[in-house]
Design a protein around this nucleic acid. Structure first.
Lengths: 116, 116
DNA sequence: TTAATATATGAATAACCGTTCATATATTAG
DNA sequence: CTAATATATGAACGGTTATTCATATATTAA
């Protein structure tokens, strides 16, 4: 069928697109990663951690909300390797996992014409 | 209070973090943007459009699912300026909105050690 | 104009997800 | 050991969201 009158041109694009479509597993991992950084509360945590590592109570103080809610959010961020944790005595100290995190936030801000 | 025994050091970080926390409105816009690209079906559409503009039926053919579902997804991607649309006769032809989109996908793949 | 094609959209349902509350675990102090 | 502090976690509730189904709109052909 010729859906749009330019089948010959588009057929090639469809074929290329199908051939280069990431595997289901990679799509799922990408999806999970973007989901992890797509909630306002989790974004605030990431922005907070730009300035250095912090223990949970300081994160709570910075971003607001209850300790429990923040802890749940930290869990999701950590499960998706957006942040890393290390124990320091009684505290767990969190920090950004790698340089990609800030880079993605900056690109997104560029897309939105945000200054931050 | 001294929650973690390094109040002097952390107080500065908390203050900086609060001071540089993006405004609520910017957090919301970032959140919406990441949400838009965080669903598997929408990610597939973005990956599909890497290879050139496509009309709806070709997108459906490439990514699967029903025409209605794809159309709803296109709407969300467009509302968040991930893709743009133009009419070409009977068809609406979609393409990626700007260069940031692919750049973000590539960064995310780097984060996940994905090849795509 | 009428019929056909391409795309969009409103409503409804089901699955998903963030928060809260209560409680559990882990570390340190006494 | 016990008490206190810091953090994590399970269950439940409420809100959000992706999909489906039916239908609407817009363009072209006849």
């Amino acid at each position: 069928m010729d859906y749009c009158g330019r089948e010959s041109e588009h057929a090639r694009i469809v074929a290329q697109a199908k051939e280069n479509m990431p595997a289901e597993e990679e799509i799922e991992r990408l999806s999970a990663s973007f989901k992890a950084i797509s909630e306002p509360s989790r974004l605030r945590i990431l922005f907070a951690l730009r300035h250095g590592e912090m223990c949970v109570y300081h994160i709570v103080e910075t971003v607001g909300g209850t300790q429990s809610a923040v802890s749940h959010q930290l869990r999701i961020l950590r499960a998706n390797r957006m942040i890393k944790a290390r124990r320091d005595g009684q505290n767990i100290v969190y920090s950004l996992a790698d340089e990609h995190i800030l880079a993605v936030l900056e690109l997104a801000c560029a897309h939105l014409n945000c200054k931050f």
